[in-house]
Design a binder for these strands. Structure first.
Length: 429
DNA sequence: TCTGGGGTCCTAGGACCC
DNA sequence: TCTGGGGTCCTAGGACCC
């Protein structure tokens, strides 16, 4: 059967989502910032590639906010802090539309999905335009669509659809070899899905500069020099499918809650508060996944750019798998006490949970210490109260109600779709 | 002054076993 | 002087992705 993968991804997703609810953001340069308003993670086209004739600003992906802040005054740049609750809801709406087109779909990230059209007869380009139109009409978001016989080629198709937006209308079908190789002969190796900064540097040094060079390179050597994934990528560029569509989310293997602080922390007390907060959040995620964990890592670090850097991780094993916030907070605080050294300006801390077993039907070890009584009931009550009255309504006492070190979100939009009190109002006149 | 967060997978190398 | 070999498992670290 003819395999056909289709990649649909949203145009500058965070910015587009914000524009849905704030029309004043339309037609002006806009970027969305990462957590803590640290750096740029989404840019509209006017903010993106540099072109003085059209007034484009040339803001790079990942640019630190403080370096581009001056554009707000000089060029009317608008910025928004990340509002993940909003983006997740808009994402769900997009995915629901996509599901109506394909029998099998893999939600790949918050703003992209793989669709499987293997065996489908007919005009793929027309299909792509129908998908575009449907998402635009039903959700209000623009998307790019790429078709190919492998995931890597569908990605490449999607890339060229965006690169030559005006000519392609945002839809590219890359099913025949001549068209495929023409694009790959042009495409720089670092634009290939799966080839990042380090790999492309090494490849270029070997003379592998374009995607076509990687496609034609000796596969055995690729595996030897790099790893099996580079070999697979090379095969995928030739139309041999190595990465399948995976439906239904696999259970997570790790759960993390990590944040940079709004301001540096120097005292142990502040770190205890932060670590308690993150451990609590990680446990909420853990319970919502129906899992138990038996390993917690806690880390604290200064800024990467600090002249006096420090970074340590403590690993704490639990005797018995658990999802009880109290146990993880206790373990995290104990770990913290082992790695905390005074005299540093801490910028970030985090918790990572791992080594999961399914909570369903879990049989504790015969010799394991008895779990805390009523643990399950208590956690259920905690989650219930917090779901109903808001996060932190009930919490471990080391977690402060309002944290002094909380992350900066100076340009946060309202919770238009997740809070009754912040719904948009429409005035009829 | 100010530089994100949350994931996955692969590999090298050490520990350990027979 | 001479001091095995091969397999498995685990983990830290590095690479990638969005």
């Amino acid at each position: 059967m003819n395999r056909v993968f289709c990649l649909v991804d949203c145009d500058c997703f965070y910015v587009s989502a914000e524009r849905l609810f704030d029309p004043t953001l339309i037609g002006v340069p806009v970027v969305a910032l990462s957590n803590s308003d640290g750096c740029v993670v989404s840019r509209c086209p006017i903010a993106k590639s540099k072109d003085p004739r059209t007034g484009e600003l040339g803001i790079k992906m990942g640019a630190p906010f403080f370096e581009i802040k001056h554009f707000m005054k000089s060029h009317g740049l608008r910025v928004v802090s990340s509002n993940y609750a909003l983006y997740q809801e808009v994402s769900n709406r997009v995915m629901r539309v996509l599901e109506t087109f394909a029998p099998r779909i893999e939600v790949y990230s918050i703003d992209e999905s793989w669709l499987d059209f293997s065996g489908v007869q007919g005009d793929l380009e027309k299909l792509g335009r129908e998908i575009q139109a449907a998402v635009k009409k039903q959700v209000g978001i623009g998307v790019g669509v790429g078709f190919g016989p492998t995931k890597t080629l569908a990605k490449a198709a999607n890339f060229s659809a965006k690169k030559w937006r005006a000519q392609t209308g945002g839809v590219v079908v890359l099913m025949d070899e001549i068209r495929r190789d023409k694009l790959l002969a042009w495409m720089p190796v670092d634009e290939i899905w799966g080839i990042g900064r380090q790999l492309s540097k090494r490849l270029e040094a070997m003379g592998v500069k374009k995607a076509i060079d990687l496609q034609r390179y000796d596969r055995k050597s690729l595996r030897k020099l790099f790893n099996v994934n580079v070999e697979k990528t090379s095969m995928e560029l030739e139309g041999v499918s190595c990465y399948a569509l995976s439906e239904g989310a696999e259970p997570k293997q790790t759960i993390a809650s990590t944040r940079s602080f709004g301001e540096r922390i120097t005292e142990l007390q502040g770190l205890r508060e932060a670590v308690t907060t993150y451990a609590s959040r990680a446990c909420v995620k853990l319970r919502s996944e129906g899992q138990l964990s038996s390993c917690l890592q806690v880390f604290i670090q200064t800024s990467r750019f600090d002249e006096k850097p420090y970074s340590r991780t403590a690993i704490c094993a639990l005797v018995t798998p658990s999802n009880d916030t109290r146990e993880f907070v206790a373990a995290a605080l104990e770990g913290l006490s082992k790695i905390f050294v005074p005299g540093y300006r801490y910028a970030k801390a985090g918790i990572i949970l791992s080594q999961f077993v399914s909570g369903e039907g879990y049989q504790p070890d015969l010799f394991a210490p008895e779990r805390r009584r009523n643990s399950e009931t208590l956690m259920k009550v905690m989650d219930g109260i917090n779901a109903r009255y808001g996060r932190g309504s009930i919490r471990i006492a080391t977690e402060p109600p309002i944290a002094q070190w909380a992350m900066k979100r100076d340009y946060l939009s309202d919770s238009f779709v997740t809070d009754w009190h912040q719904l948009k109002r429409v005035k009829m006149t």
